[in-house]
Simulated assay, not measured.
Amino acid sequence: MTDNESKNIKYSITKYLSMREHSHHELLQKLLAKGYEQALCVERIKQFQEADIQSDLRFAEMIVRSRVAKGVGEQRIRHELNQQHVADELIEQAIAEQEIDWDELVLQVAVKKFGHKPAKDWPEQQKRNRFLQYRGFSHEQIRRLESAF
């Protein structure tokens, strides 16, 4: 039973990782949802990590690239990676490696959503700020953007 279950876990992990990168936590949750024993799952995932087949750093890099391409800010990316239980040092490394100009990104997102026109009044400006905060941009980035318009 255990040997067969171990093979099934290995197959499931291989299948998941062949589709896209997954965090350690995400893999564990998917395997537990299938009803596998936690100790076996952790052991198998560790083997994949030691063989450098599963990597939380690669997962974090993938998320950062993907979210930046969609116009998502640093705060929202960090929050998403924290929810996946990715270590803070790996998050820092993944973000630093991308060399992202956050001010340029917030400008691109704002122009795409609102055009090149400045806000006509205070409520309109607040609406824009809320949108950009929701997208994960900091108050400082949004304030610098306001001065660019």
Rank of each mutant, 00 (worst) to 15 (best):
L90F: 02
Q49H: 08
I9V: 13
A96Q: 15
A96N: 14
D101Q: 08
G35W: 15
E140T: 01
I77S: 04
K120C: 03
P123T: 06
L31E: 09
A60G: 06
T2I: 10
V64C: 09
P123N: 11
N8V: 01
K15T: 11
A110Q: 13
P123M: 11
E37I: 07
A119N: 10
I13N: 07
D103I: 01
I77Y: 03
N82F: 08
L27M: 13
D103E: 09
E140P: 00
A119P: 04
L90T: 00
L17W: 04
G35N: 13
E26I: 04
H22N: 15
R128Y: 02
L57S: 00
Q98T: 02
F59W: 14
L40K: 14
Q93A: 11
E5F: 04
E89R: 11
L145Q: 01
H85N: 07
L32W: 08
K15V: 06
I142K: 02
G115R: 10
A94C: 03
K112T: 08
V111K: 15
S55V: 06
M1A: 10
R128A: 05
R65D: 15
T2L: 12
R143M: 03
V68W: 12
R67D: 14
E61R: 15
R143Q: 07
L90K: 05
K112N: 12
W102V: 01
A39N: 12
S66C: 04
E26F: 04
Q54R: 11
K120H: 07
E43T: 13
F131V: 02
S138Q: 00
L32E: 12
E89T: 05
A39I: 09
R143C: 00
I95P: 07
K127I: 00
R135F: 05
V64W: 10
P118Y: 13
F149K: 05
E5K: 11
H116K: 13
E26Q: 14
T14D: 14
F131D: 05
S147I: 08
